[in-house]
Computed example of a mutant assay.
Amino acid sequence: MPCPVHTDFFDDNCPECRQEYMEMKGANEPAVEQGKYKEFTEERAKKLYEQVMLQYLKAGATEADAAGKAKAVVRKQCAIRDMPCWPWL
C-alpha cells in the first residue's frame, strides 16, 4: 500500500514508506533458492520499469530521461541475477 504522506519520494524514517519499498522489491516473497535473488520474469521487469519510470517522472525528469533511468534499473536487476536482458531494454 502506498504511503499517503510521502507521494513524491520514499522517506527512510517512515514505516509506511519502508513497507512500500520492501513490497516493491519483493522482500516478503520467498527466494528461489537460499541466498539467491527472487526469479525476475519479464512481467515483473515490466512492472518494475513502470513503477521506477513513474517515480522519476514525479520527481521532475523528462519522459526520455525517466525511461532511460528506468531501463537502467531493470538492466541492473538482470545483471545482478546474471541473466540476459529482454530486447525492449
Rank of each mutant, 00 (worst) to 15 (best):
M1H: 09
M1D: 02
P2H: 10
P4W: 02
V5Q: 13
D8E: 14
F9W: 10
F10Y: 14
F10D: 12
D11T: 07
D12F: 15
D12V: 15
P15D: 08
P15H: 06
E16G: 04
E16S: 08
C17H: 02
C17Q: 12
C17V: 04
R18T: 05
R18Q: 14
Y21N: 02
M22C: 07
M22V: 07
M22G: 00
E23I: 11
E23W: 06
E23R: 11
G26T: 08
G26H: 04
N28E: 03
E29N: 10
E29Q: 13
P30F: 15
A31Y: 08
Q34H: 11
Q34N: 10
K38I: 10
K38R: 11
F40E: 03
F40A: 01
T41S: 15
T41D: 05
E43V: 09
E43Y: 07
E43R: 14
R44P: 09
A45Q: 05
K46L: 14
K46V: 04
L48G: 00
L48S: 01
Q51R: 09
V52M: 06
V52I: 13
M53C: 11
L54M: 10
Q55H: 07
Y56C: 09
L57T: 11
L57H: 09
L57I: 12
K58W: 04
G60I: 12
G60Y: 11
A61G: 06
T62L: 01
T62G: 14
A67W: 00
G68C: 01
A70L: 09
K71I: 08
K71D: 01
K71F: 06
V73P: 05
V73A: 05
R75Q: 05
Q77E: 08
Q77V: 01
A79W: 01
R81T: 04
D82L: 03
C85M: 10
C85A: 15
P87V: 14
W88Y: 12
L89C: 15
